[in-house]
């Protein structure tokens, strides 16, 4: 369980978070929504210690992140998967190396094990066909082509999915997704949503998803949190979100309803 208590964060004169307190329950999916620039990404980075709060504390399974030693912090991070908003793939490395860098650097040198992990997760995010549905030679060919590509040779959506696949490597207990479906086509988006939901259900993963995609919210969320102007504006189930009378929440949902209604 992750407990966030009264967290403040500013960048220079810019106050981003002004006292955020929340609880991320085990084995559930928490979705964070909110307008651009309200500090959603900053909040995720604060939790894993990539940024430090100016005030307030973050506790993961009873241990305060700010009091952890460097090695404890790295130990903690090995239990996390993190999908970055901009994918953040290592651009000097192939897709396969991107996925297994962490495992390799922590001592896993068995190429069979590494390859299996790459295959499993690329299939998970739909970048490779299910090996049971195609012949081995077709699959291997598809694998060789994709696994040896550099990030610069991929489309934006493919990069995003490789980013998701990389976060799943090593079967983490916590997975943080920073806008995993932004920029993807509706079919792939749905596939990723299904994946997020399935991981939570089948593997008891605790997920936190930042999204601008209202369909994802309804599909995966146990709890929805809306950030507004550096504070939590709403917290509740997707159903409660839909029936909220808060004007800010209401306006936010209205906009989505309209933007999607306009699509022919």
């Amino acid at each position: 369980m992750i407990v966030i208590d009264n967290v403040h964060k500013a960048f220079g004169p810019k106050q981003v978070l002004r006292g955020v307190s929340m609880l991320i329950p085990e084995g559930e999916t928490t979705v964070i929504i909110g307008r651009s620039g309200t500090g959603k990404s900053v909040l995720l980075k604060l939790i894993v210690g990539l940024l430090e709060p100016d005030e307030g504390t973050i506790t993961i399974d009873g241990r305060r992140v700010d009091l952890m030693s460097e090695s404890e912090r790295y130990q903690m991070r090995r239990r996390f998967g993190y999908v970055f908003q901009g994918a953040a793939l290592f651009d000097s490395m192939t897709v396969a190396d991107n996925l297994v860098l962490g495992l390799y650097e922590h001592g896993e040198r068995n190429t069979e094990v590494l390859r299996e992990e790459v295959v499993r997760n690329l299939v998970n995010v739909g970048l490779l066909p299910d090996p049971r549905t195609v012949s081995a030679s077709v699959f291997n060919q598809a694998y060789e082509i994709l696994a040896n590509k550099k990030p610069a040779e991929l489309s934006g959506g493919m990069r995003k999915r490789v980013g998701v696949a990389r976060a799943l490597v090593g079967s983490p207990e916590y997975i943080f997704y920073d806008e995993p479906t932004t920029g993807l086509d509706p079919i792939t988006s749905e596939q990723i949503d299904d994946l997020v939901a399935a991981l939570t259900h089948k593997l008891d993963v605790t997920s936190v998803v930042i999204t601008h995609d209202i369909f994802s919210v309804y599909k995966v969320a146990h709890t929805v949190i809306m950030l507004d102007e550096g504070l939590i504006r709403f917290r509740g189930t997707p159903l409660e979100l839909r029936s909220s009378h808060d004007p800010v929440v209401h306006e936010f949902l209205e906009r989505y309803a309209h933007s999607h209604a306009e699509v022919p």
Binding site: K45, V48, L50, Y74, Q75, R77, R78, F80, G81, Y82, F84, A88, L89, F90, L101, G102, E105, H106, R166
Partner: peptide, 8 residues
């Protein structure tokens, strides 16, 4: 940041 998250 991605390296940090892989505990490298």
């Amino acid at each position: 940041d991605a390296l940090e998250m892989m505990a490298v």
